[in-house]
């Protein structure tokens, strides 16, 4: 089963939130959707699941548009953690409703999982703590047995132990059932250790898409110090993510032999390779030159 997003576009109040969104997700993949606040990640998820109607484009599973074949929606799960109806219900009541909506939903397994994680089974979800709600959301998502599970900020508000727990549950589910996850999170450190691929949203569209494996092979984060400051020529090959006096930190997405030679010719006083994280890619892609982070 492959999920394909094809030329998706959404306009709200005459503002294009996103357009020309194209990507696909294969079974067993974990994809991170990364972007700055307000870029339209949640809107994208809501449009993908039919809560918002797309202005153009479509979402297909195995080349069948889900708007034509509504039963395919059973294979996509998304709940907006901030705006969901089920906070007024207990897990038992929610299980009954989801069992009607998702034919593969296993009520007993779900309630057992809820109890196993010490979530009160007879209490309304709105009485749960934020962390408990986050965990509950993940358990509910997995219980639907949807092939594609979309999680919006699943680590938001979770303490370190629950966060580890949630990550473990998700990785197990992917490994055992070959489900696919689409995760948006501002916690890039967590995402970094979880996802296979990152889709970066910027300026209403996908600005870039990385396989994290390729990224780790080809990209470099390098700290450089030059006597007379960073040569202009080098700036053409990468992105400056930090500048403090004569110290510059640059990210090169595709670090080639040619770049290596250019740096060598420029004769830096210091050349040091730093560990590259998803957060660095976020900075290199999404932080504007005028942004305050660069100025600090």
């Amino acid at each position: 089963m492959e999920l394909t997003v094809n030329n998706l576009k959404k306009v709200i109040n005459n503002h294009t939130i996103f357009e020309n969104i194209n990507f696909s997700i294969a079974p067993g993949q974990i994809v991170g959707v990364v972007g700055r606040n307000g870029v339209g990640k949640t809107t994208l998820f809501k449009t993908m699941t039919g809560v918002y109607l797309a202005d153009a484009g479509q979402v297909s599973i195995d080349e069948q548009p889900i708007e034509d074949e509504l039963n395919l929606k059973q294979d996509i799960f998304f709940v907006d953690p901030l705006n969901n109806f089920y906070i007024n219900y207990t897990p038992i009541e929610i299980a009954k409703m989801y069992a009607i909506t998702y034919s593969k939903f296993n009520r007993d397994e779900f309630l057992a999982a809820v109890a196993k994680h010490n979530l009160p089974i007879k209490q309304r979800i709105k009485n749960y703590s934020k962390g408990m709600q986050g965990l509950f959301n993940v358990l509910l998502a997995l219980a639907t047995r949807a092939q594609f599970i979309i999680l919006d900020e699943p680590f938001d508000g979770l303490d370190v132990l629950i966060r580890e727990n949630v990550k473990r549950i998700l990785i197990n589910a992917v490994q055992l059932n070959q489900i696919s996850l689409i995760i948006s999170s501002h916690n890039l450190t967590e995402l970094d250790t979880l996802i296979d691929r990152a889709i970066i949203l910027k300026d209403t569209t996908i600005s870039s898409e990385y396989s994290l494996e390729n990224l780790r092979e080809n990209a470099r984060k390098i700290q450089l110090v030059f006597k007379d400051g960073l040569p202009e020529e080098l700036k053409r090959y990468g992105t400056v993510v930090e500048e403090r006096g004569r110290v510059s930190v640059m990210i090169f997405e595709n670090y080639t032999h040619e770049i290596d030679e250019k740096i060598a010719i420029s004769a830096p006083l210091l050349y040091e390779q730093l560990p590259l994280s998803l957060e660095d890619m976020f900075r290199s892609q999404l932080v504007d030159e005028a942004d305050f982070i660069l100025k600090k």
Partner: peptide
């Protein structure tokens, strides 16, 4: 209560 949002996302 956003129940309509849930309904719109179902099959």
């Amino acid at each position: 209560q956003n129940f309509n949002l849930f309904l719109a996302s179902t099959r």
